[in-house]
Design a protein around this nucleic acid. Structure first.
Length: 114
DNA sequence: ACCATGACGTTTC
DNA sequence: CGAAACGCCATGG
């Protein structure tokens, strides 16, 4: 374990930039960081997000299908869904409804963080 | 150094 | 159209 690498840090930054009521996918973030083939690494970064002092909106980050695959990484089981529903996002059976409507692409919305 | 795993994604059957 | 396999890359054993 090392301190947050630049890659991880970027992931966290993007995750924090996700606006209220919006979500994004690991692949989108990975691609934005230039590591489209390392989508899994993004998930890994999220796992390591617990090490981050700042709270990462991991619940706003889902896979490309809009499925809350990483929900069991949260404290409880329905915590992630509750958070998303609190933001006006409909979640049924760990699946985000109208995913394309609430989808927030960093590449399209953010030219570049730095 | 090699094998196994994982909060993913794309292609193929 | 749905399920399975493969690919990618980093971390752990």
């Amino acid at each position: 374990m090392k301190e947050a690498d630049n890659f991880f840090e970027k992931v966290y930054q993007v995750a924090r930039q996700i606006p209220f009521g919006k979500v994004t996918s690991y692949g989108a973030i990975a691609k934005y960081l230039g590591a489209a083939r390392s989508a899994r690494m993004v998930g890994w970064a999220m796992n390591n997000a617990s090490s981050q002092r700042e709270e990462i909106h991991a619940h706003r980050v889902v896979n490309r299908k809009g499925l809350l695959t990483g929900k069991h990484h949260f404290s409880g089981t329905n915590v992630m869904q509750q958070l998303l529903e609190s933001e006006g996002i409909s979640v049924i059976d760990h699946q985000i409804q109208d995913f394309e409507k609430v989808f927030w692409d960093p590449i399209k919305e953010l030219p570049e963080i730095f």
